[in-house]
Design a protein around this nucleic acid. Structure first.
Length: 737
DNA sequence: AGCACGCCGACT
DNA sequence: GTCGGCGTGCTC
């Protein structure tokens, strides 16, 4: 008996389902359908069937199209997204649809283009790199990359891998094909069916071996672990052993989450060459829509055994999930900052629990929440103490007291001297400064006027080379003014230091050094960062100047000095997580110094060399510092001892924001049993992109009362007259304020 | 969110 | 006289 009515979830900000009359073709739960909604056709997901409808049956419309040849969203995925929609107070329909590849959100039946893997053939190999003219830089680059693949396992490179090397890769590939050097094999995208690696896996050190043993002892149940180990301690090898074991039984699948950085290809390559027997797909933002859909389907069908992906891939259906890994679990990019504001690490934990499989959270500097759970025994704690790479010693970390040394354009004599030494020895240095542009403020010497952004409550940053003032928050730009608009004085100073100014200072100070600046401005071009990293490896650079984008991942063997310029503002930030983040960041930059055979040195310029953070950093003692921070959090009543939720609101006029937040605060006071609700406040950035902002913080010592309040509050706000005029969102477990 | 309908100001 | 501003209301 087919029920006459169907409940459908749609991508609309209305937290309810819509009933339709079933059409000729029967539907199943989890199926994609197209339905008439208002005046247009929308994609929906079937959530259920019923014999009657609460809606006026005469007004019910009929399903337009059932996409019956597509696989269904399985019950586990639906349930996980339902859980998240409830926990993060986001409409279920929107949560569901936003977890799908964009192709599946569109009303057309989803087709995916054929995918190819490219490899050099014998003719191409025989020709050699020198057969390509020097000026065909892209062809040469692709050729070199393809050449590297050859020895390994003859699988070739995907279109995405080639595209990562150059935006005009297709032209170059066509040229190489014209010459008959290149073979294209059609593949089910991403699935390399390579022969097993002939490389012997490295021998595990005792810490690694114990980690693997302890996790595998719980191979078939939900068991969360924190794998704590510094850069180079061999976390990745542990992941690979676990995958190997958990996937040995045929249909098993593993999900590996990685932060949103350009590092996915490296990890992917490593997994592919070490575990060639398991078809692997990746899911990240650099993927084209067609490839993304293809990979998603391979995961959903179980054909892909390993899925490596960024935060959104935590929702990818995987019918035979046996293991979840969250690498660099402390990384802030796991938190979605708009739409459904989920934390992929937390969702991964829920997912592992529901699936009854082990989950491994890896980090050198775990989030305090995670560390706390490991300390209280909620998570198993596995520490990798020693560096797996035998020769690599820990870098020496020192502070330079900037109050005791005269600075030259922001640089201390000690740091300059250290760079000179490296230059003389032919080694590389990295200067880490968290501020791009030339100078962070333009100041009038006469009246103290500071160039402000018109749309945000922020200062405009001087970009001298372009002759522009830029807002780093909204992208607003204007010409550098010559006269103070306030007092007419021409005595305007670019004050403070950014990457551009540092680059200029260094060029004057060390004229013989080859300096490379790496920040969002200099890497705007599509493959600029790849080129720059290649230049560093090719030893074409002596000093790197850059922002935190340099902190992550890349290994530069000749880099032996890291200088940290200006981090003091984070030491006394009003954000209670600032110290935790700074520590993680500094540990990460410190990890850049001295790999392989050369010992590294880290010099930190600060006015507070005795600060506890630096003491902990010097001894590379995460545990001690985490303990100190946790004590602070316990006293100040912050996470992980309290649970937080933030109601964020913005509108053209502050009065509207204030009105909505006032209502919310009153509601919270009246209905929030066991919840502490603060007064509405304005965030650091009071105005952003022309919108006036405000927020309301609520806290409780367990999740339940907070969730209980949020449920009624959200429902009340949706009914509130200001709902239409104010954009608001609930952020459960917020990371940023 | 879209996309209607609906009632008041400056344009061919 | 219309074109178009965005206020408010609805979508099975």
């Amino acid at each position: 008996m087919t029920a006459p009515f169907v409940q459908v979830a749609l991508d609309v900000p209305l937290d309810r389902q819509f009933d339709y009359c079933a059409g000729e073709i029967p539907t199943q739960v989890g199926q994609r359908v197209v339905v008439p909604f208002g005046r247009r056709q929308q994609v929906g997901i079937v959530l259920g069937h019923s014999a009657d409808s609460a809606f006026d049956p005469a007004r019910l419309k009929t399903i337009t199209q059932v996409l019956q040849h597509e696989p269904l969203l399985d019950a586990d995925t639906l349930a996980l997204l339902k859980f998240c929609a409830d926990y993060y107070h986001y409409p279920y329909g929107q949560a569901l649809l936003s977890a799908l590849p964009t192709r599946l959100r569109q009303t057309q039946a989803a087709v995916s283009r054929k995918q190819y893997l490219y490899a050099l053939n014998e003719l191409g190999l025989a020709a050699g790199l020198d057969a390509i003219p020097k000026r065909q830089a892209i062809q040469r680059r692709l050729y070199s990359a393809l050449l590297q693949q050859v020895g390994q396992h003859g699988s070739g490179m995907s279109e995405a891998a080639l595209a990562a090397l150059s935006p005009s890769w297709r032209k170059a590939v066509n040229a190489l094909q014209q010459m008959g050097w290149l073979t294209a094999h059609e593949v089910i995208a991403g699935l390399s069916l390579a022969s097993p690696s002939t490389l012997m896996p490295p021998i595990l050190n005792p810490d690694q071996a114990e980690a693997v043993t302890r996790i595998l002892a719980k191979a078939k149940e939900f068991a969360p672990f924190l794998l704590h180990g510094i850069t180079g301690s061999g976390k990745t090898e542990v992941y690979m052993r676990l995958i190997e074991q958990q996937l040995a039984d045929k249909p098993g699948q593993a999900l590996v989450l990685v932060p949103e950085i350009n590092l996915t290809p490296q990890l992917e390559a490593r997994f592919r060459s070490r575990l060639p027997q398991f078809p692997l797909v990746s899911l990240h933002s650099n993927l084209g829509e067609s490839e993304r859909l293809q990979n998603w389907r391979l995961a959903q069908s179980g054909q892909a055994r390993i899925v490596i992906g960024t935060r959104l891939s935590v929702f990818t259906p995987m019918p035979h999930l046996r293991l979840v890994i969250v690498d660099e679990e402390h990384d802030g990019s796991y938190k979605q900052q708009d739409g459904m504001r989920y934390h992929a690490r937390d969702v991964a934990l829920v997912r592992a629990q529901r699936a009854g499989v082990p989950i491994v959270l890896g980090s050198a500097t775990p989030a305090l929440e995670t560390w706390h759970n490991a300390q209280t025994g909620k998570y198993g704690l596995l520490s990798l103490g020693q560096r797996a790479v035998a020769a690599a010693a820990l870098p020496q970390i020192r502070c330079i007291d900037v109050t005791k040394q005269p600075l030259q354009d922001g640089l201390s004599p000690a740091l300059i001297e250290a760079m000179r030494t490296r230059l003389a020895r032919g080694e590389q240095s990295l200067l880490f400064i968290n501020r791009r542009g030339y100078a962070p403020v333009l100041l009038c010497g006469a009246c103290q006027w500071i160039a402000p952004c018109t749309r945000c409550s922020s200062r405009l940053v001087v970009h001298l080379r372009q002759g522009r003032l830029r807002c780093h928050h909204c992208g607003h730009e204007e010409k550098i003014v010559r006269q103070c608009p306030s007092c007419g004085n021409a005595d305007l100073h670019a004050t403070g230091h950014g990457t551009q100014r540092l680059e200029q200072t260094l060029a004057a100070l060390l004229p013989q050094a080859r300096i490379l600046r790496v920040d969002r401005d200099s890497t705007r071009r599509k493959d600029a960062l790849t080129d720059m990293i290649a230049a560093v490896h090719a030893d074409e650079v002596d000093i790197l100047v850059g922002t935190q984008m340099l902190a992550k991942g890349h290994d530069f063997p000749k880099l032996t000095l890291v200088g940290v310029i200006d981090t003091d503002s984070a030491l006394f930030s009003p954000d209670f997580r600032a110290a935790e983040r700074l520590f993680a960041q500094l540990m990460q930059v410190a990890g850049r110094a001295g790999r392989a055979d050369k010992p590294g040195e880290v010099l930190i310029q600060t006015a507070f060399p005795e600060h506890a953070l630096f003491n902990a950093l010097r001894s590379q003692d995460y545990a001690a510092y985490a303990q100190a921070l946790l004590q602070e959090r316990a006293i100040t009543q912050f996470p992980p001892y309290q649970y937080l939720a933030l109601l964020k609101a913005e509108a053209n006029e502050f009065a509207l924001v204030s009105g909505l937040l006032r209502y919310a605060a009153d509601w919270a006071h009246a209905h929030g049993t066991d919840v502490l609700s603060y007064e509405p406040v304005r965030p650091q950035m009071e105005r952003l992109k022309g919108m006036e902002r405000g927020q309301l913080l609520m806290q409780a010592d367990s999740r339940a009362p907070l969730q209980c309040l949020l449920r009624t509050l959200v429902a009340a706000l949706r009914e509130h007259p200001l709902n239409a005029k104010v954009r608001w969102a609930v952020d459960v477990d917020p990371l940023e304020f």
